[in-house]
Nucleic acid binder design. Structure first.
Lengths: 342, 342
DNA sequence: ACTAAATGTGTAAACGTTTACACATTTAAA
DNA sequence: TTTAAATGTGTAAACGTTTACACATTTAGT
């Protein structure tokens, strides 16, 4: 029984060859004889040797790691994206860092620095990126942003839905169902009240209603505090207060299934019939929308396609000389009608 | 404007000092004068310098990274644990690798090797670990297992619930509610039909029923294929087939909310009243169980406490000489009664 | 048989850190 | 005033890889 084999030096010593040869075998690069090749591979097999990626990274300036930053992994919306991304990259030998930003700019900043320190080969970000390290550009790390984008001039590949168009369609659905008093529910983040994505949804929805002469304004837009531990409960409380003040509502457009769920929960509790009295539609098309009674009409954002596209684009950038790109990719979303708008 | 500052060498050159001094300042180790200290810190601040963790790891044999392995991050059960773990470790400066095993032993094996290659400081595993690298012991990496455990003799800290006791209580609840024909639903994994956790739940449930002379056997235990994309749908199909063959059932004990949801979905569709005709109880106490109509009685496994305990134990092992432990920690779970068993 | 190309292997430098050691200077104790 | 301890700084080796380069040997083309 040979000594412990922990480095290629150990392998070299054990087989009386040089580390260079071992490295060449392990990387299948350069010349080496089949006999030596077999000896090395056999020993690797037998001992289960694994090379040190930190050392390799140091030499090669390539870590085979990806950083994924998102607001909250416990949210099914984000975790389903995370699953797709992890599977994509693990399949091709990359490891994945995940971190939660809670939409907190300070955390985003900290995580970004950790990514830089760990020399990730690329970043996928589903967070606002309100505060990027000021020297970020000098680290040639490609970034793909999904669904939300920073207000900065760093070139970033952006992947988004055709939100305006789909929200417009939702508006038309409400109109078709004779709704007149519609409210919209969205999340607010500590510092970002209106983000680009919300704006597109608001505008699409606004224009869709306006086309049919239904009044809708910012006053019909309600916010749920996203920093809360229980967003569904927060939404419930919001709707309860609207019910309490006897506000007339016959349609609710939520920018996330979680809000829609909270709304349905509150309406159910109050004995308000859905869709009889109030129609509900939302974004996400998560499991929530199918589980809920009544099932909720929701926009499917094609998350798997978004995530896969993000991976492909990122990989392309990683493997190209030009690490930065400003490309904008629109992924089509589509409305799935269910009981809540019947 | 000085040149790009990317390494401590750049800092040293820029300030006309040695890298050793820069390193000492950055690590606040050893002696350095306040003036030089300030100069270095100012430059770091100004340039946003971030040290290279790979190089540091190579020298220090410490990466400040943790590996988290779980079957499927898109499952809220796992993602809520992942959130707690990520937040715990990020707070103290660690980064987190996440990978999905899909309960596939080959993937587990591959991911474990990646963890070794990346020299993680510790591993938290919520997967079966059917196949560990044979040389694993020689890498002194502490492992904490949550909820499911390998069949091997590697010392691993195990964190689990008092499943037997709680399942016993659920049995008593069913008895109290006059249920006689109860089935149990669990997931099966490609190669692990009966795992230890299921065994405890089955035994606790069995003993609880037996104490009141209610017959229950393995024939009352049904499996849902966990490799399916849509587990809820699979469960629904299972229950539908039981309904079709007119099987008499007045109680369903599911080992996961997802199964319970599928069951409720199927029963609702078939017009079978819950809890009138059939009582349902499950494990997880996830959002699903509160959202569902009727809300489902479910066992809260104290996930946050489990995850936090895992983190604390892991950190203790990381910071101690003895990296391995066989400790078994029992986290109490508790039953949350809801409409489905009224 | 002569030469050039192809093959196989080893030496040593480099990647960006940390730190033992050496050395010089300052401070404090006697 | 002498001397030991404390303080401040630099040099160089080390961590585990990869790879340019050098060198030797084999193979192939004439």
């Amino acid at each position: 029984m040979s000594d412990q084999i922990k480095t290629i030096k150990d392998i070299a010593k054990s087989l009386n060859i040089s580390v260079a040869t071992v490295s060449r075998v392990l990387n299948k690069s350069g010349y080496f004889s089949p006999e030596v090749g077999k000896k090395v591979m056999d020993l690797v097999q037998e001992t289960g040797f694994v090379y040190n990626r930190n050392a390799r990274a140091l030499k090669n300036d390539k870590t085979f790691t990806i950083g994924l930053m998102l607001p909250d992994i416990s949210n099914p919306y984000f975790s389903s994206i995370a699953l797709t991304i992890e599977e994509y990259f693990n399949r091709i030998g990359y490891a994945l860092y995940i971190c939660n930003t809670k939409s907190d700019p300070e955390l985003e900043f900290k995580h970004f620095n950790t990514f830089i320190a760990n020399k990730v080969d690329g970043v996928i970000c589903i967070s606002q990126m309100s505060k990027l390290p000021n020297n970020f550009m000098q680290y040639n790390i490609p970034i793909i942003a999904i669904d939300r984008f920073p207000i900065c001039n760093i070139p970033i590949t952006k992947i988004m839905n055709d939100d305006y168009q789909t929200s417009f369609e939702i508006a038309e659905l409400f109109v078709k169902k004779k709704c007149k008093n519609i409210i919209m529910i969205s999340g607010n983040y500590e510092n970002v009240i209106i983000n680009a994505e919300l704006l597109k949804r608001f505008n699409g929805f606004y224009d869709g209603l306006k086309m049919h002469n239904i009044t809708f304004s910012q006053e019909n837009l309600y916010f749920v505090d996203m920093s809360s531990d229980d967003i569904i409960f927060e939404t419930e409380a919001l709707i309860n207060s609207l019910i309490a003040e006897q506000k007339e509502i016959d349609g609710i457009f939520a920018t996330s299934d979680q809000f829609a769920l909270g709304a349905v929960y509150a309406l159910n509790n109050a004995g308000v019939s859905i869709p009889g009295k109030v129609k509900v539609a939302s974004y996400d098309n998560s499991l929530y929308s199918t589980i809920c009674r009544p099932a909720i009409t929701s926009v499917d954002q094609n998350l798997h396609l978004m995530a896969t596209t993000a991976c492909e684009k990122l990989l392309t950038l990683i493997n190209s000389d030009q690490k930065k790109s400003n490309e904008v990719i629109i992924i089509p979303s589509y409305l799935v009608e269910r009981e809540s708008t019947n």
